[in-house]
């Protein structure tokens, strides 16, 4: 093996430091004259020294303040052979050994490059997006339910939603700062505002579709489905901007499932003592111009009811 590559902590989603040997020697430690400089305070200034002898690479531990592990086995020898795929632990840092011809993943397309351009406007555009979405929510609430609309209450509701958006964007910004050294708060805020708008639009569409099912279970499915779709889109963008995960869609799917699982658990606790006593029926109503069917005859409907009773009797 002509040369080796050392990579620090190749965890997905984080920027990895990688160094290739140049010649027959490679030095690792905290001192600035090493080939690979580690910032871990539990690593010695001159911790490891890699050497090539023929086609084989070896490493020596130069300081023994903290133990060094090779593939989880403590290193006691003065010189240890090292091969591609090995994992060396020094202090709190893990080093992975690769050959120079190790295949790297294909170049990923920067799908949100256009979105990133939005950040050039600073916080103006994200805040504008949030206010816009909040105003749309307020208008829709008014348009649909003003029978006993309390404006102040609605404003509080909208402000609370906006606060949740800001907190959500803030958490992802922190994640981005940690994992990618870039917070992208403004971008995250635009995305979560867009999610709020998407939820409103999907809820209206799903209401319309679910109405024609005349089935409580389908109505329920649609209400959960819109959460799932919107959350999936939201997480996909959040992950893409704040992390370097290799499969953001899979990560989004897992995150969506977990979040919906938690929400479902809160809504439908396993202790089901109360579930018997309320009928679950199709509740959605649409105003006349949106109803395009004529309905079945009274006789046909009550025959269906008779059949339903018959099934219960069996």
């Amino acid at each position: 093996m002509e040369a080796i590559v050392l990579q620090v902590e190749a965890r997905h989603g984080r920027v990895a430091e990688t160094v290739r040997s140049n010649g027959d020697s490679l030095r690792v430690g905290r001192a600035y004259d090493n080939d690979l400089i580690l910032t871990d305070p539990h690593v010695a200034p001159y911790q490891l020294h890699f050497r090539r002898e023929g086609q084989q690479w070896f490493f020596a531990v130069r300081e023994q303040v903290n133990p060094v592990f090779l593939n989880k086995q403590r290193v006691t020898e003065s010189s240890c052979p090292v091969n591609p795929g090995d994992e060396i632990t020094v202090g709190r840092t893990k080093l992975h050994v690769f050959p120079v011809d190790h295949a790297v993943e294909p170049t990923r397309k920067l799908m949100v490059s256009n979105l990133r351009a939005l950040e050039n406007h600073g916080t103006f555009l994200p805040v504008l997006a949030l206010i816009g979405v909040s105003l749309v929510d307020l208008a829709i609430n008014f348009f649909y339910s003003s029978t006993n609309l309390k404006w102040l209450e609605q404003v509080y509701v909208v402000l609370f939603s906006a606060l949740i958006c800001v907190v959500w964007a803030g958490l992802w910004a922190i994640a981005g700062r940690i994992l990618r050294q870039q917070h992208h708060f403004g971008l995250q805020l635009i995305i979560v505002s867009g999610f709020s708008l998407l939820m409103t639009a999907l809820a209206m569409i799903s209401n319309y579709i679910a109405f024609y099912s005349f089935n409580a279970a389908v109505e329920e499915f649609f209400s959960w489905a819109i959460y799932a779709i919107a959350l999936l889109v939201l997480f996909r963008l959040n992950f893409m901007i704040a992390t370097n995960v290799q499969r953001p869609l899979l990560a989004s799917f897992i995150a969506t499932s977990l979040l919906l699982g938690v929400i479902y658990g809160v809504y439908y606790p396993w202790d089901d003592e109360e579930f018997e006593y309320e009928p679950v029926y199709s509740e959605i109503l649409l105003p006349p111009p949106l109803i395009v069917t004529d309905g079945q005859t009274t006789q046909a409907y009550f025959e269906d009811v008779s059949d339903a009773f018959g099934k219960l009797q069996q």
């Binding site: 018997e276 309320e278 679950v280 109503l285 309905g295 005859t297």
Partner: peptide, 18 residues
């Protein structure tokens, strides 16, 4: 037992009812 429901749009006396 648990409730079972039958829901539909029905035409009664020339008008639609859910």
């Amino acid at each position: 037992d648990k409730f079972a429901c039958e829901d539909d749009l029905v035409r009664i006396n020339d008008h639609r009812w859910k």
